[in-house]
Design a binder for these strands. Structure first.
Lengths: 188, 188
DNA sequence: CGCGTAATTGAAAAGTATCAACACTGGTGG
DNA sequence: CCACCAGTGTTGATACTTTTCAATTACGCG
């Protein structure tokens, strides 16, 4: 549920920052700030230094579907840079968010010249794909109760950190349903 | 629903095949053959030359969740090669399937030495991620009827090609429910 | 304190799954 | 040629799950 990428963060801080004179900028966002909007042109790739962000899509019927929560080292804006498309999801700071901001052009240059970086990005993409595939398969094949239980086991203090509405949007269910299940789980 | 990748297929046939002496093998599979099993060690990466394959995960409770249908130019086994993990999904031929088979070691070598190939794979991964994110968001936020309608519009002759059970597994629903919806759609 | 947002809960309505029965199809073997 | 079988498709009835709607309550903050 909360994705991280220690290797990538490590590489940025230990290697790239020293050799990139001003091309990698450090930014901070207040909670609830929209860092990246949906269907916008993306001019930078971001890597999270600290904090938590939610990545979500708003559907035409207004429903908000949370793709993932991003933690330290997680990257976003990279898909748009690679495919040269408009952003398809929205990134919003959950709490105070610190990021490294890399110009899209420089990001693509790095991909071509820095083999270590290239490999890290390849692995990050492969890993995201693997993860989302498994998550959605699990979600669709199991009962709501199983899904919620699993989440609680992995992230015991999730309820304190993330709003119920967001958890529901992540699971693709109604808040009312989430409450009912939480209650039945608590009774056991 | 049926993913394709013309650029990748083109590059394989026009460029790679000429310079790879025997390292890229051509294979054929009969319908229903399992090309890649779940939780297996993967020693090759595959790219579809012709035919249709289904990519699915079997959950612990026996439910089968179809991730995607792969058509011409689509690649599989690449995630496992990049991340050096066991396969997390199963690939099965739907009809007669012809593929190019690339040794994992050669695939990784290509990634490092052939920048065009590297870029094609990066784009393929980015594209898959984008696609699956949008698909699952749509699926979870819309009614069953909307989902089925959308599928029928995109692939009018889907029902002739793919078994009802598979379509249901793809949508993450029951076959009975699929039938009910198909009937109500037909009445309009 | 008062406001706005989030959390909680009940009751009714809508949507889905489960179970079970039956039709249709393309082999297979006597 | 026909009976049989396995697999797939189709449908009704019922039970179960989830959403919708609506009403309160709790909480953080200026």
């Amino acid at each position: 549920m909360i994705r991280k990428n220690a290797n990538l963060l490590h590489y940025i801080t230990k290697h790239l920052l020293q050799h990139s004179e001003g091309t990698i900028e450090s930014c901070q966002y207040a909670p609830r700030t929209v860092v990246l909007g949906q269907k916008k042109r993306v001019s930078s790739v971001f890597i999270i230094k600290s904090g938590l962000a939610k990545c979500y899509l708003t559907e035409d019927n207004g429903v908000e579907f949370i793709q993932e929560f991003f933690g330290e080292g997680e990257i976003f804006g990279e898909l748009e840079a690679i495919n040269e498309k408009l952003s398809f999801c929205c990134i919003e700071a959950v709490n105070t968010l610190e990021v490294y901001k890399i110009e899209t052009t420089y990001f693509k240059e790095l991909l071509e010249t820095d083999t270590t970086f290239n490999s890290l990005i390849l692995k990050a993409l492969a890993n995201k794909l693997n993860y989302t595939a498994v998550r959605h398969a699990y979600n669709q094949s199991h009962t709501l109760e199983d899904n919620v239980k699993r989440l609680m086991e992995h992230y015991p203090n999730l309820i304190q950190e993330i709003a119920k509405q967001d958890i529901a949007n992540y699971l693709g269910i109604n808040v009312r349903s989430l409450h009912r299940v939480l209650k039945t789980i608590a009774q056991d």
